[in-house]
């Protein structure tokens, strides 16, 4: 094999140790230089040496805003931990230029909360499934929950499809293009020959209908 310039990536512990080290360093640097007063200066310094995308500085300058967001978003006692998690995420990886760093940070926070709610719900469901399936099954024998789960998935898909159709063919099609094909809303307005606000309102009605559907399913 002929190539140069590669190296084996270190094991995990090293990686996280480095991450923590950089956290300490950057935070104390921020305190020393009074980053809240001179965020712009720090930003330009970082942009110059190109070592980060400026996310870390934007994070430090907007920490309180992000905390307020997380609290409003329902994070409660976990808000500080989540902030820390965001910090680790942004300092652990070097990314390309980000057009809007602040928006990126808010989005990261929002996504963390979305994931959290999801795992919370899944844990709830697992607990319920556990107590249900542990009635009358033979220990050590799989009662093929995966096949069952697969069926449930298809059933869920069918219900979602019907619900979207009931909102209308165009909202259903716009939903598919946006959520499954990842086409941005602005481009969908062009594609369907409608205004951006019509795309938004179609999606809003589709989202609300799916939320109502899920509520009905969960109640069963």
């Amino acid at each position: 094999m002929r190539f140069t310039g590669n190296r084996n990536v270190g094991s995990n512990p090293t990686l996280s140790a480095n991450t923590f080290a950089s956290f300490e360093a950057a935070a104390s640097k921020a305190r020393r230089s009074g980053v809240f007063a001179s965020a712009d200066e720090d930003l330009s310094a970082v942009a110059d040496n190109g070592s980060t995308s400026g996310l870390e500085e934007v994070f430090l300058a907007n920490r309180d805003r992000l905390l307020r967001f997380l609290l409003a978003r329902g994070a409660g006692d976990a808000a500080e931990d989540l902030l820390q998690e965001i910090w680790l995420k942004i300092s652990a990886r070097r990314t390309g230029p980000i057009a809007s760093p602040l928006s990126y940070l808010f989005r990261t926070a929002d996504t963390l909360m979305i994931d959290r709610f999801r795992s919370f719900r899944q844990a709830e469901r697992r607990e319920r499934d556990w107590s249900e399936t542990h009635d009358g099954t033979v220990p050590g024998v799989s009662d093929s929950p995966s096949a069952e789960r697969h069926l449930i998935g298809r059933e869920q898909a069918r219900l979602a499809m019907e619900t979207l159709r009931s909102v209308g063919e165009r909202p259903a099609a716009i939903f598919r293009r946006h959520r499954l094909d990842g086409v941005p809303q602005r481009r969908l307005a062009e594609e369907f020959g409608v205004s951006l606000s019509t795309v938004e309102s179609d999606l809003r009605r589709a989202y609300a209908a799916l939320a109502a559907l899920k509520e009905r399913i969960d109640e069963v």
């Binding site: 409003a72 719900r121 598919r176």
Partner: peptide, 26 residues
């Protein structure tokens, strides 16, 4: 969100429903 704690919950429910539907549809 800050106006009422119910808002965050409602947003979470909508997001979860939409994400699950998007994953199930394919």
């Amino acid at each position: 969100l800050a106006a009422d704690p119910v808002h965050a919950r409602a947003y979470d429910e909508v997001m979860l429903a939409v994400n699950e539907a998007s994953e199930a549809l394919p």
